[in-house]
Simulated assay, not measured.
Amino acid sequence: MNADLIAVDWGSTHLRAWQGEKTLNLPLGVSRLDGRSPRDIFDRHIAPWRESPATPVMMAGMIGSDAGWQAVPYLPCPLSLQTLSANLCEVAENVWIVPGLKVEGENVMRGEETQLLGAMQLSPAACYVMPGTHSKWVQVANGQVTGFATAMTGELHHLLMAHSLIGNGLPQQIDDDSAFREGLARGLRSPTVVSELFRNRAARVLGKLPATSVSDALSGLLIGAEISAMLATCPVKTVTLVASAALASRYQTAFTAAHVEARCVSGDRAFLQGIRSILDERR
Rank of each mutant, 00 (worst) to 15 (best):
G20N: 00
K22N: 12
S12A: 14
A17G: 06
G20F: 01
K22V: 01
S31V: 09
R16F: 10
A17I: 01
A17C: 02
R39L: 12
W18I: 03
D34K: 14
S31F: 11
T13Y: 14
G35V: 09
R39I: 10
L26C: 03
T13G: 14
G11W: 03
S31Q: 14
A7S: 13
V30W: 06
H14F: 13
N25I: 01
D9W: 03
R16P: 08
I6V: 12
G11L: 08
G11F: 07
R32M: 14
L24M: 07
D4N: 14
L26Y: 01
S31K: 14
T23C: 07
G29K: 05
G20C: 01
P27I: 12
V30K: 00
S37D: 02
L26D: 04
P38M: 07
G29E: 07
H14P: 10
D9N: 11
G29I: 07
A17P: 02
I6G: 03
L24I: 00
W10Q: 07
Q19T: 06
W10K: 05
L28H: 02
W10F: 04
R36C: 06
V30I: 15
A17D: 01
L33H: 10
S37W: 05
T13Q: 14
P38S: 09
I6Y: 05
G35P: 07
N25V: 01
W18K: 08
L26W: 00
S31I: 05
N25P: 06
Q19N: 09
S37P: 02
D9C: 05
V8E: 00
G11Q: 04
R36E: 11
L5R: 15
K22E: 10
H14Y: 14
G20M: 02
H14T: 14
L15F: 07
T13M: 13
T13V: 12
P38A: 06
L5W: 10
R39A: 13
P27Y: 13
S37I: 00
R16E: 04
S31N: 15
L26T: 03
L15S: 09
G11C: 08
L33M: 11
L5V: 10
R16M: 07
T23Q: 13
A17F: 03
L24Q: 00
H14S: 15
K22S: 12
L5N: 05
H14Q: 14
